[in-house]
Nucleic acid binder design. Structure first.
Lengths: 328, 328
DNA sequence: CACCTCCATGTAATCGATTACATTCCAGCG
DNA sequence: CGCTGGAATGTAATCGATTACATGGAGGTG
């Protein structure tokens, strides 16, 4: 592999000049410049990024931390991040934790070892306090998933209000007995949405039945399991509000297997407005999050943090109800 | 940020000793070792990866190159890659091209600038010849998507035979007029599958109608578009064979909107056996690929290539037909 | 006691770039 | 002709680690 020295020798100049040509600095004679370029060509030289990064103490690379990439929702957020990152000349490196603490540590090591300049975190697999100290040490922005404190700026929707609005929508459609398929105990977004649910019921004087709250997670299978548990109760609710579209779809699927049809026998509401919510039959009424914008804004925040802008505020973006066929 | 020098100073030893402790070399007195460890603790020191990588001329990082992460199929392949990579102490860096040549170049730059040790490529957005020369210069393994030559080892299924088997399956179910929703002109896998289709029809003496071949791509919307085009013809085929599950699902959706029901009026067959193929209604009969294993094997190949094993052979893994409800 | 061995540790070169500072060269001017 | 200034280029320090080689000291042996 050719290095800058080889190029310098081949072109009969010093390494400094080669470097100047590579980074197209001014003050290089046209003649020498082309001589260097020719040497680069013939040697198939490409600057070593490690040397450059070390010298500059910066990599122009950022980390996106996800639980899994198999989630349609995140894929769109990532697209927003990538587009903005490209604009700012950053390379995006996606790493997944798979809910595994060890994997998470490996990813955090990328920050500590300066292999990336900063990170956008969309998962939540460590204690609050530990995360806070990480945020003090490195440029970090959260997207979607909120945290109790505000150690890092966060970009996302107002989960409480989004849920409140959705539940009120169901109530306006005559539903009073509404089951909740939540995201699991670990998720703060899920917790906030539950609060929104409680508030909406309270406002309309509807008593809360704790037996209707299920903590199965944000997955398709969570919907299956939720229905199986629900069917053990003596009476079916009028509606199910699932905190993820895929959970809603799992529920619809299981219900149909049991001969219960949506929305005739029961209404189902999803969350996220992922592509599948439109693809399936019936299509899912859902709460849309501006995924692409969340990603874009998160990257924008991270980028200005990396450029030395001090303390940044979190950004709340608007949610939106999308009416489709699964609620009647 | 503390460096190795700071730690050395704080512990009253040389940088060499600190390095030895970090990399837990033998021949360090227990006493000095703990002194160094204490200094590391108090200074919150973490070794700079750039310095280390530069010195070692290796990063223990590999690149996974995808078109988009929003594809369920790849997500499972990536899981296989990640698990094997972890076993071999590599970090996986996912980058997406979004079908964009500039993005692809940015990713290739990661190889050239030695920011990653090697790459697993699952997309195909450059001319054959260019790719071949890239493979000569860097450790690269292909997964899933095949290339004409064999510049790099490839792990995947036998697309020709898989398609042949699927078509024969349809023929055995009495279908003769079978439309093909293909992956697009750029895709070699799609090309091979078309050949398999032609061969199967030929074997059973069924004439090929070129008007039944549609090149719309591997997406959901491709299924929608395909049906719209198909409905302009005067007669509906007996079956549709889509080269991706999402395309099959798009087709089913559009058909149902037009009042045509699957599988009663027309059968639909998918490809990949992604999670959605089981989730939707009706569930999709499909050709399963061993996605996780493909990823695992690809990483295994790359890893041994990185460890100096010279020329490696491609690996073909078995496909499998999964019967569900969309074919009758 | 002189010498050898081996363990623990230190010194300094090295990886491949960038860049502050030094140097060279030439044109322009009085 | 000699001086000045600025453009073009070179020299060498630097980024933060690893590691070959050097060194010093303790312990063993004849």
């Amino acid at each position: 592999m050719a290095t800058i020295k080889d190029v310098a020798k081949a072109a009969g100049v010093s390494v400094a000049t080669v470097s100047r040509v590579i980074n197209n600095a001014e003050n290089v004679k046209e003649e020498t410049k082309s001589a260097v370029e020719k040497a680069i060509q013939t040697l198939h030289y490409s600057p070593n990024g490690l040397g450059r990064n070390l010298r500059r103490l910066e990599t122009k690379r950022i980390l996106v931390l996800l639980n899994t990439i198999s989630n349609q929702f995140f894929s769109r957020v990532v697209k927003g991040i990538e587009d903005k990152a490209r604009e700012e000349n950053y390379t995006v490196m996606i790493c997944t934790t798979r809910g595994n603490r060890k994997n998470l540590n490996d990813s955090i090591a990328l920050l500590q070892s300066k292999v990336v300049d900063g990170a956008i975190v969309m998962t939540r697999e460590m204690p609050e306090e530990e995360f806070a100290s990480l945020c003090r040490a490195y440029p970090i922005v959260c997207a979607c998933e909120p945290w109790e404190g505000n150690a890092a700026p966060r970009v996302g929707i107002d989960d409480f209000t989004a849920s409140f609005d959705a539940v009120e929508f169901l109530i306006h459609h005559g539903k009073e007995k509404i089951a909740l398929f939540e995201g699991g105990k670990g998720s703060y977004s899920s917790y906030l949405r539950e609060l929104g649910y409680r508030e909406a019921l309270k406002k309309h004087g509807i008593p809360i039945e704790e037996a209707l709250l299920f903590q199965e997670g944000y997955t398709y299978n969570a919907g299956i399991r939720g229905i199986d548990k629900l069917l053990q109760q003596r009476e079916l609710p009028q509606a199910i509000f699932a905190f993820a579209d895929s959970t809603a779809i799992g529920a619809v699927k299981r219900l149909s297997e049991k001969g219960i049809s949506v929305p005739e026998d029961i209404s189902v509401m999803g969350f996220d407005n992922t592509a599948v919510s439109e693809m399936c039959l019936p299509s899912i009424t859902t709460v849309a999050q501006p995924q692409y914008e969340i990603g874009w804004k998160a990257m924008e925040l991270l980028s200005s943090q990396l450029n030395g802008v001090p303390k940044l505020k979190s950004i709340t973006l608007p949610h939106r109800l999308i009416q489709r066929d699964s609620v009647k």
